[in-house]
């Protein structure tokens, strides 16, 4: 990078002849800046603006309208004293961990299987990817019917003669999260598989030949050589799956509506309910802020590692 430093020094000497820094920032490449303006405004107003708005009003006692007065951390104290919120958070952590691990592992294994030069590969790919084309609402409804003890699989098999067959996870407070997980995996693994497959296809065939000559077993080649090469794909998959977990809402609404009782509540549903049907905006926004905080706590160290010191990335 020594050569990069030279023009910087040279630039410092010639700034006298150039337009001022402010002018350059404003007017260099003007058309490009005009084209980017709508997006910049959107980001500033919608993302940054609304985030600040959310955080601000989470410190007020707003009820139906965001007009309340400042009450400090009252809303947060109430939030963490509410068992519904605490169950929501626990559920999300449990669901999120399992969903992340299973989606990645199952997606990768499916991709490896598809990558074995099988016949009808595109047909399998389409079948696997198909659930992803459905909305969470449809997925939730379909699985609600399948798992409903009086309508779906359980009744069908009992009517066929297997009278003591039991599959009532959806109505069982201790198992309902796994019911949610089944629907979530059915929806998401296909997409993960396609991403992974693209990553596998990006690996040069000669790498495989070299590994065979070196006598490295196939599983070892995948684990030690191919997976590390797929880093970019893994990060992409992680971000997509992770954001899907945090905003988990519609699947729960369609599949269990938080039930039985509050045993499958999730934070996003808590926030939505308080803001739009519970008439307690302050409480909803406090929940939303906590969700944001969690994401930030996870993302910042990672982003620092990933994009931090560029020199350290070798």
């Amino acid at each position: 990078m020594a050569d990069a430093a030279v023009p910087l020094d040279a630039g410092a000497e010639t700034t006298v002849n150039r337009p001022s820094l402010l002018k350059r920032i404003l007017f260099n490449n003007l058309p490009a800046k005009i084209a980017a303006l709508p997006m910049m405004v959107t980001v500033l107003v919608v993302f940054v603006g609304c985030t600040i708005w959310t955080i601000y009003y989470s410190f007020t006692n707003s009820k139906l309208l965001p007009t309340g007065k400042f009450v400090g951390f009252d809303q947060y104290e109430r939030l963490f004293a509410t068992s519904r919120w605490n169950v929501s958070v626990t559920n999300l952590i449990a669901y999120g961990a399992m969903s992340l691990v299973f989606t990645l592992v199952v997606g990768f294994i499916l991709a490896v299987l598809i990558d074995q030069k099988i016949r009808f590969e595109s047909a399998f790919r389409t079948i696997m990817l198909y659930p992803f084309a459905l909305s969470f609402i449809v997925t939730g409804l379909v699985w609600q019917w399948i798992m409903n003890p009086t309508l779906g699989l359980q009744t069908t098999l009992r009517n066929l003669g297997w009278t003591n067959f039991s599959f009532d996870w959806i109505a069982n407070p201790r198992m309902v999260l796994f019911a949610l997980l089944i629907a979530g995996l059915w929806h998401g693994t296909g997409f993960c598989m396609v991403l992974m497959l693209a990553g596998l296809r990006g690996v040069d065939e000669e790498i495989w030949k070299a590994a065979r000559i070196d006598g490295i077993p196939t599983w070892r080649t995948y684990v030690s050589i191919v997976l590390p090469m797929m880093r970019g794909v893994l990060v992409t998959a992680l971000v997509i799956i992770g954001s899907g977990i945090v905003r988990l809402y519609d699947l729960v609404v369609a599949l269990t509506n938080g039930g039985p009782g509050i045993s499958s509540e999730v934070p996003a549903k808590y926030v939505f309910n308080y803001m739009f049907s519970g008439g307690n905006i302050g409480q909803g926004l406090a929940g939303a802020t906590m969700m944001l905080l969690t994401v930030v706590i996870i993302m910042v160290p990672w982003a620092y590692l990933e994009f931090g010191g560029k020199g350290r990335r070798t």
């Binding site: 070299a210 006598g215 590390p228 090469m229």
Partner: peptide, 18 residues
């Protein structure tokens, strides 16, 4: 291949990048 007593060098080098 590993039992044949051969070593092979490829056009694309095929080094393990990580």
């Amino acid at each position: 291949p590993k039992d044949r007593g051969i070593g092979m060098v490829f056009q694309s080098y095929a080094l393990y990048p990580q």
